[in-house]
Design a protein around this nucleic acid. Structure first.
Length: 219
DNA sequence: GCCCAGGGGGCTC
DNA sequence: GAGCCCCATGGG
């Protein structure tokens, strides 16, 4: 129904910002750790924590499990809620080590629906984090929804802004071809635009690539 | 000093 | 389901 509009928004963002090349990480394990750590925190804080983990050489399920809690807290302290997140990281690592013999690629090779259910069963991994892991670590085309997606598409008049996660995700899936690269870039572009919207309050609308189709009061 | 970041869980109604 | 609080750092 709105296929042309969803593709038009993508084209505008892609032409304006260029390739995002997400996820910024060297390994799939690093993607997953980053996906958990980035919850409700600026990405630069995650970069600090990831750098700490790399320096300590514990970006690996078994080695991360061996780090004492108090030490892990200090390594990931910049990412906020660090005690909770330390537990969440270890909970995930324990599944990989205990249930998949430490073979992360075997865990990620599962079909998207199976993998999603497995991830959602873990404390600290909700729908957005699970879908981010499936898209950016497992490489399967699921569309990731975040708060920027709700905000931006309601301002475009394409959604109400109060849909559930699943409802909004279904809209994207119904209006776009199921292509990995498209889903990958689209979510990354939405986050990029979201950053620009929040940094500059009202005058940003003039240089926004969606300016002429935006229904926001300031545009 | 104030605001808010690439959420999620648990609780209440 | 919606609304609320908890978690608890760092940069603009």
């Amino acid at each position: 129904m709105d296929e042309a509009k969803y593709l038009d928004v993508f084209e505008r963002l892609a032409n304006h910002f260029g390739p995002r090349q997400w996820w910024p990480a060297e390994t799939t394990f690093e993607v997953i750790i980053g996906a958990i750590l980035t919850q409700q925190v600026a990405w630069r804080n995650v970069e600090t924590a990831i750098a700490n983990l790399k320096r300590r050489d514990v970006l690996d399920a078994a080695r991360l499990l061996a780090v004492p809690d108090e030490e892990l807290w200090e390594l990931i302290r910049p990412t906020r809620f660090f005690r909770q997140k330390a537990t969440r990281l270890k909970d995930f690592c324990r599944v990989v080590v205990d249930d998949y013999h430490g073979d992360l690629s075997a865990f990620l090779a599962q079909e998207a629906g199976i993998l999603r259910a497995r991830l959602l069963g873990l404390r600290g991994i909700g729908k957005e984090t699970a879908d981010s892991i499936i898209l950016y670590a497992s490489g399967q085309p699921v569309f990731v929804i975040d708060s920027y997606t709700h905000r931006i598409f309601s301002r475009l008049g394409l959604t109400s802004g109060s849909e559930s996660y699943d409802k909004l995700q279904a809209r994207f899936v119904q209006n776009l071809p199921q292509e990995l690269v498209l889903f990958n870039e689209y979510h990354a572009l939405i986050v990029t635009l979201g950053h620009h919207i929040c940094r500059t309050q009202t005058p940003h609308c003039g240089q926004c690539p969606l300016n002429d189709i935006c229904q926001h009061p300031n545009s």
